[in-house]
Amino acid sequence: MYPFIDFLNNFLPFLYIITFGAYSFDFIKTGKRRFEFARLSLFTTLLLHLIYLFSRTAEFNHPPITNVFEIFTILAFSVCFSYFILELVTDIRGTGPFIIIISIIFQVISTLFIEDLAEVKEVLRSNLLGSHVFTALLGYSGITISAVYGFLYLILYKDIKLSRFGLVFNKLPSLEVLEKLSFYSAIIGFVLLTIAMTIGVIWLPKAFPDFSYSDPKLISSALVWILYGLGIISKVLGKWRGKKVVVLSIVGFILALMSTMLSNFVAQSFHSFY
């Protein structure tokens, strides 16, 4: 089983890069066949990635959530998976490369540094931890996609304002669609983060003797949650719109990314598994 897992681990970045290439080609030179190939490539990549994740779980007898590099591979998967569903539901075109590149970054880091850990702390085999991490990761995928669409919104907004009618203008969906995609992804991300945090707050004090409410990861996650909450409420109430909301989404994503880095590599807490 090990060689198969290792093979998939090394093969996945290439699959994501091929898919990225296919979507980029379709972005530059739109064509029905090119798009179908890109979609098929994404589907194949996701399928093999899923097989990889299940194989790891079966081989090492724990879900791949015990260290940051395992989490990165799940993030790579969940970001692209969320995008795949979004693409199927909305039939949106022209945004694939911008999302897939995020998965490539996560997967390449994971492939390079992931270790085959058969022995992990007992607490990391818990189902509640699984639910906590799983919902948190899907939540992060939501806010990642929201940030990407927010970023695309800002580029297109500027291009239209400055009468720059190039590739971005021609290929991206309308500003209003990008704003909606960013907002809906943020809502999904926020809801899932809320669930993850609720599970965490109930379960963490019982599972970890050294649990502390002043844990940096907990504080930064709460900050991200508050930020998104405020943004969503302002948007729903009609106080904020467009640029302001997408900028908030991007800031929230950067903050979430930094909080993960901080808690895993810098600060030592019960939230650091690596």
Binding site: L156, I160, F169, P173, S174, L175, E176, V177, K180
Partner: peptide
């Protein structure tokens, strides 16, 4: 066409 690049629906 430009309007459709700004507004949807």
């Amino acid at each position: 066409q430009l309007i459709e690049k700004i507004l949807s629906a």
